[in-house]
Computed example of a mutant assay.
Amino acid sequence: MSAVSTEVLKQAFTEARTFNKFTDQPVSEATLRELYDLFKWAPTSMNSQPARLVFLTSAEAKQKLAPALSPGNLDKTLAAPVTVIIAQDNRFFDHLPTQFPAYDAKPMFEANAALADATAFRNSSLQGAYLIIAARLLGLDSGAMSGFDPAKVNEAFFADGKYKVNFLLNLGYGDASGNYPRGPRLSFEEVAEIL
């Protein structure tokens, strides 16, 4: 593989922004399905794929989420074309026999709830990040959020306890008038070392 173009790097990283405001252009179901079909190929440990996605597109669905949102996230979430609940399936290992046939890893997770939870959280977080990059590559903008009450989200959307929320992500076509000035990034020397 060769490096992608500078334009692609700009779209995915260097000029991409977190959006707080979106245009009223809707995001079609076809686009959401295309987003999933791209995002699903990103790697997870043992091909575990623990992320579960709930795409909230209707006013009714957004109102169901509203009581769980912090005040600073309420208006922008209700106005966003799509809000994605990125959740984790702590029984992701039920799919391992087909998704990871290299060896039988299911018993390892089935016998260790802490390991299953940590693996589900780590990998669903990775998958949420992949979702952001995939959205950017498809021309969508996003705004990730952790300002919400997880217990209320879980009660409203995952009352059976099968899944639990990791974080929320607004999606749409960004309106730059809602952006804050871009924050600086730490230098290589501040965060990395080569041994």
Rank of each mutant, 00 (worst) to 15 (best):
K21G: 12
F22V: 01
T83S: 12
Y103E: 13
P26R: 13
P26A: 14
E155Q: 11
A12M: 15
L195H: 12
T83A: 14
K164W: 10
F13E: 01
A135S: 15
Y180V: 13
F13T: 04
K10G: 12
M145R: 14
G139Q: 06
D24P: 09
N179T: 07
A87H: 00
M108V: 04
N20Y: 15
L96C: 07
P43D: 12
A159T: 09
D104Y: 05
F100Y: 05
Y180F: 13
F19A: 13
F100E: 02
L9W: 08
D75L: 02
F188M: 02
M108F: 02
V4N: 14
N170R: 12
R185N: 11
F22E: 01
P67I: 03
D24C: 01
Y130L: 00
A156K: 04
L115I: 06
K64P: 02
M108H: 02
R122D: 05
V27L: 14
F93K: 05
P107H: 03
K40V: 04
P107M: 02
A114Y: 11
A105K: 14
F19H: 13
F100P: 00
G143R: 09
E29D: 14
F121H: 11
L137N: 03
F121G: 04
M108C: 04
V54W: 11
A16H: 03
A12V: 13
E15D: 08
R33E: 14
N112K: 15
Q49V: 12
Q11E: 10
D37Y: 06
N20S: 13
A12C: 10
D94V: 07
G72Y: 07
G72S: 07
L38Q: 14
S70M: 14
I194D: 10
L126T: 13
D149C: 01
P67Y: 08
Y130P: 00
V54M: 11
K164S: 10
G128T: 00
A79M: 06
A113T: 06
F158N: 00
A114W: 13
I194V: 15
W41E: 01
V4S: 14
S177W: 08
A176Y: 01
Q25L: 08
A42F: 08
V165L: 03
L168W: 04
F158E: 01
N123R: 07
H95Q: 15
